[in-house]
Each structure stands twice: as structure tokens, then as C-alpha cells.
Design a protein around this nucleic acid. Sequence first.
RNA 1: GCCCCGGUAGCUCAACUGGAUAGAGCAACGGAUUUCUAAUCCGUAGGUUGUGGGUUCAAGUCCCGCCCGGGGUACCA
Length: 572
Amino acid sequence: MIHLALQEKLQRAVLELMPEADVSSVLVRPCPEPKFGDYQTNALIGLAKRNRLNPRELAAKVVGQLDVTDYCEPVEIAGPGFLNFQLKTAALSDTLVSATRGEHLFYRTAAEPRTIIIDYSSPNVAKPMHVGHIRSTILGYALARVFRLLGHKVVTDNHIGDWGTQFGKLLVGWKEHLDKDALGQDALAEMERLYKLVNTACDGDETVLARAREELVKLQNGDAENLAIWHEMIDLSRHQFDEIYGRLGVEFDETLGESFYNDRLKGVVDDLVTQGIAEESEGAQVVFFNDHKSLKKHPAIVQKSDGAANYTTTDLATLEHRQDSWQPSEVIYVTDGRQQLHFQQLFELYNRWKPGHGMKLNHVWFGAILGEDGKPFKTRSGEIIRLSGLLDEAEQRAFDVVSEKNPNLPGEERHDIARVVGLGAIKYADLSGNRQSDYVFSWDTMLALVGNTAPYLLYAFTRIRSIFRKLGNESLTRPESFALGQAEELTLAKHLLHFGLVLEQVVDECRPNYLCNYLYELAGHFGSFYENCPVLQAEGEIRTQRLALCDLTGQVLKTGLETLGLETTDRM
RNA sequence: GCCCCGGUAGCUCAACUGGAUAGAGCAACGGAUUUCUAAUCCGUAGGUUGUGGGUUCAAGUCCCGCCCGGGGUACCA
């Protein structure tokens, strides 16, 4: 909060001295070391250098133009030309007081809201969702919520895989080997079985492969029976997807699968050919990127030699539809890192097809989920791990821990807590690391009660709730000001002020782990405060102020966790 | 072959436009409990940031070479 006011004043001071300067990079940030101050800027060093000035002299002149006495002690020039700002407690106190009045929660919404499309999850019809889908789902939904918290308009779209060559094999399986009982029990498992069965049969038998092609052509040509089966497969799949999304608390504004774009595909290819972007090569329609370094040797196929389109074509049609429907300023794709080449091609191709479209096209990719042996996360027999079972296990493990730690809670409440903690642990493990790193899936690590984990953060929240439970019916009085006389109070209060800055950083780089780190630090600062500053036993103004600090910390924790897609609980 | 990504403490990870003494957790060791929930807190120890050069007042971060690992690479998505 305050850093924005300082930043604005600083930028104005620089412009007084250098009217031509680009001050967009003159930023105020928290100090890496508290001993230097609360906030700093290092931007003047670079600015001086670009203008062949002495950095310290420039810093001195800027300080001369700068009046921040409302907020800070006298500004200090340090080292090669850093400015260090030390907050006045009064300024800190004012910000806290306005927060207790509900005027803000330490962040500002965007002055100019943008429209952003976020594409995540995207499971395939007739295949069970597995552990690989969870990262996209969790990351994408968390990002959507952070953008929304900051006042942006977000359209979330689940681009499910409901079309493609796999349906030829699925149709053969459905017609010749379907087990209706199994379908009733677990539709996705049965469809997966059918697919594997036919797929294996195709390897050794040309006639089966020919059957599959035949069924696929019939589907594509609108054969009534095949279309009906296809619709049923989609319905059954979506039912199970929705069950998982319900458990995860994830939602979508749109679910426009690949098939939604079928009508447009031919037109896209024609367009590309007419405009000379695509050309024929080995029977296929292909786009070459000869003047592009990393794509030079990687042409993109937009129409296969059998005349069918592929996912590049579908994605182009999808982008066109998104541009026409919502005019977004940004389209975000949350997928694993193996699709980097595809999205490079897609974006480059779209830029050529629709020059000047003005959208930021952003592939937000993430690393693999590995088992504790460092290899791709699978069951011991090498099977892909299904999401529903994984969620069950998370809840069960969390239930065991809750029951051990707090056996006196009623069973129903323990189940509720186990759901919040178990699912929270899985989500938080996905969110708290750098998304681009591979991450090692470990129950013990994610359900640990200490460290940067969901249980630790949730526990911090329950301690706050516990204080307010003890308070009973006593009404919360709002402090006139905050003295912040004890070091732990001061540290906690200052950290609350950084919430908005962190939210901005999450949005800028699509990295929810920044918010996780922030909340973890907040919980840590609260822990120290809690140990060293009695709240209910304190008296008078101090008690009022500490209760208010607890309340504000609780609000930020809850808002932060909910923005990440985690629920909170009052007891653990 | 080419392209992309990564390599940070024993392990898992972080490090905000390049910025001040590279930070956490786990594991190890030592301390704190007539509690506001100890599912906690405090402390100790642990590093040539893969490697060799370069740019810079300043490099984990940028540039070049090399080593190691992962992924991708014409009709799957």
C-alpha cells in the first residue's frame, strides 16, 4: 500500500529533474534486509548510468525534490545510490486503522481492468483424469482467482479433448466389446479399457485399424449412430470431470471442447493457404518458419495428408473465436512444459494470420510431477495414478493425522477438517513450488505439520480463530491507532502491507508460489507474535490493537488461501 | 544433429526491473510448555550457486564455451 504512494512521489520527483525520463521502472520495493529500512529503490543507479550521471549525485538531487515526511523518516542514500525508506509508525498505524474500517485489505484493484482468458485443465473425453491434470487445474484456477481479486475480468475455459482420431478406436471398442455393467460402475475406466483393447489389437491386425478408420470417417461425416455414441461418451466423461471439479472446488465459465470448432477448421486452412501462409508439402498443408531461429526446423502441420485438421488448426480456430467473442488483452494457456514447441508455433502462426491482433499470448507451463524415486509419478505397477483415488488418499491421510492430534473432536468435524487439510495439502504442494520445476510428489512432505505446507498455514489460521472463540460475545472494538511497541507486532504489521505487492507479482509472472511464500512468511511472523505477545491477557489499548492485528492477519490469510483455491477451517 | 528447459546446503525448494552479508523447510544438534491449540516458538550448524571465461560499481540472475540431467523435434494432444 504505502510503497505505491512512495513510488508515485518518487516518480514525480524524478520527472521534475528529468522530464524525459521513463519512470516506469522506477519502483519501490521492500528491503531485502530490515536493517537497511522498510522500502528501497535501486532504480536511480541504472537511471543515472543510462544518462551518464553520477548515481549518488542524482540520488541526492532526487531526495531534494522528494517530500515523503508523511510516511517516512528522512530518506537515506546508501551504497552506490540506493534510497532507503524507513516507515514512520504513524503511517503504518494509519494504514492498519483504515484496514480495520474495511476500506481496503492491503491491495488496490487495477485502475484499468483487463480481460483475460485462462485455458486450463483440458482433460480428454473417455480417459480418466490423472495426476498430470491436477497441476493445470489447480494452477489455472488459482491464477484466475488472483486476477479477479485484482479487479480484472477473467473468462475461464475448459478446452476438453472431445474430438480426434482416438474416437475411431473407441467406437470399435464400444460397438464390439462394451461391458454395460462396467460402464455403469466406472464409465471412464471402461472406456479406457476399450481404447486400450482396440489400440493393442490394431498393432497386430490391419483389419482392426481399418475398422477404426472407417468408424472415424462415419463419425466425421455425421453418421447418426456414431454421433449418438460419441455424445454419450462425452456426457459420461463430463459427469466424472464435474465430480472431480466439485471436490476440488474448481469452476469454469466456459467448456468449449475441441469439437466446438469443427465447423471452422476447413475455413482456417483455406484462409492460411489463400494468404500464402501454409503450403503443400508431402501431401499435407504445412507452415514453415524459415526466418525464425528456434522454429526454423520445426514446421507446423495445419492439415494432415488425409485431409483432416489437427490440434494446431483447432487451436487457431479457438484463438480466433476468443478474440472475436471477448477481445481479451491476454490469453493464458496452463499446460505442461512438453507443449512449449506447439505453443511457440501456434503464437507465431497466429501473429502471421492475424497481424496486429493485440493480444498477449502466454504459455504458462509447468514441470512434471515425479515420484519419490525421481521418475514420472506412477503406481508401482506402472499405471498412471487416477485423480479420484489420489484425492481419497489425501483425505484419508489427513483424517488419520487429525484423529491422532485431536481425537476429541466429533467424527463429522474431523472428516470436514480432513477434507480441507487433505485437498489443501495437494493443492498447496502444486502451487508453492516454482511451477517450472519438476516436483516430487510426497505425502509426507505435503502433509507435514511444519514447513511451507498447507497444514502449517491452516493451523496458523485456526490459532487466530481460537482467540476469537475465547472472546465469546465480547464485541470487537476498533483501535484508534496502533502503537506497535513490540518487535513482533511491528514485523507482522509491516508484512501485512506487502500483500498487494505480492498479488501484483503473481499476476505479472503467473506465479502463484509468490503468494504461497508470502502467506508462509505471514504465518511465520504471526507465530512469533503469538508466542511473544499475549492477546487476551493484555489490557486496554494494547489488547484492542492486538486483537485487531489478529483479525487483519486472519483476513489476509483467509483471502490469500481462498484465492489460491484452498478452504480454511476454524479448528484442526 | 537441432531446439527448449534445468543444475543453488546431505534432501526438497526459494531468491521481486541485475542490488547490499544467497534465504526457508526437512534431516542433525541444543533450548522453551502451570498455553490464547506445542499441528508451536527460539537457537546452533550446514554454500567456490555444475564448470571455465566475459560484461558491470554490482552476477545465482545477462553474454559465450564446455560438462551433466530432463523434455521436444512432419501428419497424437
